[in-house]
Design a protein around this nucleic acid. Structure first.
Length: 469
DNA sequence: TGAAATGTTGGGGCG
DNA sequence: ACGCCCCAACATTTC
């Protein structure tokens, strides 16, 4: 009887379209393992830990049902895998590749160590449609502009998804941590109530999420910009943890009628690929601006303003609504992410790194590449970045994309009684309107922590100082 | 995947 | 009827 193959789960918490699992199952017995290894430079944030717990619970049930229970262990990945190989007599180990710089380095070492120990180690493509080293410009350089990247990506159809295994041959008697012992979920206080209301993590939840999205995909292109609607797919956390693969989603989108929102949706998938590719080729973007001249940028330091932003107390309703949605659900609507990010970086002149850290901790879809690349995009120091003079006006953005105030009223209920005409600028409400709505400005809802016009002028000055000197 | 400032045009009020 | 002005509406430029 051939020895079992260890399947090391990481950001691929699913049984369908899982190339590593598929390959292992074809060879014979499998030993699935997930290792809690928080040693890297970007340890999991609180919201991600919550999602991971839920997702592992589902994966564990699925694998047990298929016949190969999931082993949970914590510690240094290399040592754990070596020990497991010894315990099980496994002569091979497989996994699906991750592309964060520290993970690449770690996995390289593990692969070499394994092979030295006579254990065959093989990795597979699973979390990106295209390997970051596969798509290059005509001159052979990595893409730094989205449009040509997306053209190149569109011309290269991704592989078809693998089916889920029907049955696995597992091993019994191996020791495993309990999921609860990892304490991934909050207890006191339990801040995850809003998370549970909104999300069903795991592979089955991902497919249900797709089904719901498919019903509305024809209006995706328009409604994806309206935060009061459920217009976006909300698939991002599933993708971040690999509850579903981009190949599966691409394949599903291909089956929709062309000309529907499928094209816009695929474009968003390509944005994800673009960011991953940037991180691969420019591995320090989580910490350093891609455009080096930004190292000299005069960011302010203002812990009070930062806290006001984090807690949704800026006095700008659309900003506060977004930040509270994030805090409550672990997620924020895409349009509003751009508004709050622009507000932090331009109105408050606070470093994009502070926003990156906060999103990393609070988003259930936190992804190193997306987070770094998009914050740099907003700050103007990244690839294909927003020009420095593009400063969102939070009032206009609110009036344009939340015209009926559904979103602001949901997340900033203390001003819900204002009429639409002043909902996005409560400081302009008349005394009568404030009284009728039960609002005392500065007490029940903050006055704006910065004046838009002055903040805009200050940002333009600061950004201009980079250019002229 | 901006917003504000500036420029241009044309309808209409009015002497 | 005409010229003048105002200003909304749209276009262009600038940040």
């Amino acid at each position: 009887m051939p020895s079992s193959t260890i399947v090391w789960f990481r950001r691929d918490l699913r049984v369908a379209d899982n190339p590593a699992l598929h390959a292992a199952a074809a060879r014979g017995g499998v030993v699935p393992i997930y290792i809690l290894d928080n040693d890297g430079p970007w340890p999991l944030g609180g919201a991600s830990r919550w999602w991971l717990h839920e997702s592992l619970k589902v994966l564990s049930e699925q694998l047990s049902r298929l016949g190969a229970p999931l082993i949970l262990r914590h510690g240094a990945s290399g040592e754990i895998l070596r020990a497991l190989a010894e315990e099980t007599g496994s002569e091979s180990i497989v996994w699906n590749r991750c592309y964060e710089p520290a993970t690449i380095a770690r996995d390289k070492t593990i692969k070499a160590d394994m092979q030295e120990a006579g254990i065959a180690a093989e990795s597979f493509n699973a979390t990106l449609l295209h390997e970051p080293w596969d798509l290059k410009t005509q001159t052979g350089n990595p893409f730094k502009v989205f449009t040509p990247f997306s053209r190149a990506a569109m011309q290269r159809p991704p592989r078809a998804p693998y089916p889920a295994p029907q049955k696995l041959t597992g091993m019994t008697g191996l020791k495993s941590d309990t999921l609860a012992s990892w304490k991934l979920q909050p207890t006191s206080p339990d801040w995850a109530g809003g998370f549970r209301e909104m999300w069903t993590p795991g592979e089955t939840g991902a497919l249900a999420c797709w089904d719901e999205f498919r019903e509305n995909v024809s209006s995706y292109k328009v409604l994806r910009d309206i935060p009061g609607e459920t217009g976006t797919s909300r698939l991002s956390p599933y993708l971040a943890f690999g509850d579903v693969s981009p190949h599966q989603l691409w394949h599903l989108a291909q089956q929709l009628e062309p000309g529907t929102g499928a094209d816009s949706f695929k474009r968003q998938i390509i944005w994800r690929e673009f960011c991953a590719q940037l991180l691969y080729h420019f591995p320090n973007i989580p910490e350093e601006p891609l455009r080096a001249e930004f190292s000299a940028f005069p960011w302010r330091s203002d812990s009070k303003a930062l806290k006001g932003w984090q807690r949704g107390q800026t006095g700008y309703p659309i900003v506060d609504a977004g930040m509270r949605e994030l805090w409550h659900t672990g997620w924020m609507h895409n349009r509003v992410r751009m508004v709050v990010a622009s507000f932090l970086v331009k109105h408050l002149l606070l470093p994009w790194r502070a926003g990156e850290d906060w999103f990393w901790d609070t988003l259930v879809d936190a992804d190193l590449a997306n987070n770094a690349a998009n914050w740099q995009w907003v700050a103007g120091c990244g690839a294909d970045a927003a020009p420095y003079f593009r400063i969102f006006n939070p009032v206009l953005q609110g009036e344009k994309f939340d015209a009926d105030g559904v979103y602001v009223r949901r997340w900033v209920p203390e001003i819900a009684g204002l009429p639409d005409s002043v909902l996005h600028k409560p400081w302009e409400a008349t005394d009568g309107q404030l009284k009728a709505a039960g609002i005392v400005m500065g007490e029940t809802y903050p006055l704006p922590i910065v004046d838009h016009k002055a903040a805009r002028a200050r940002a333009l000055d600061a950004f201009a100082s980079l250019r002229g000197g």
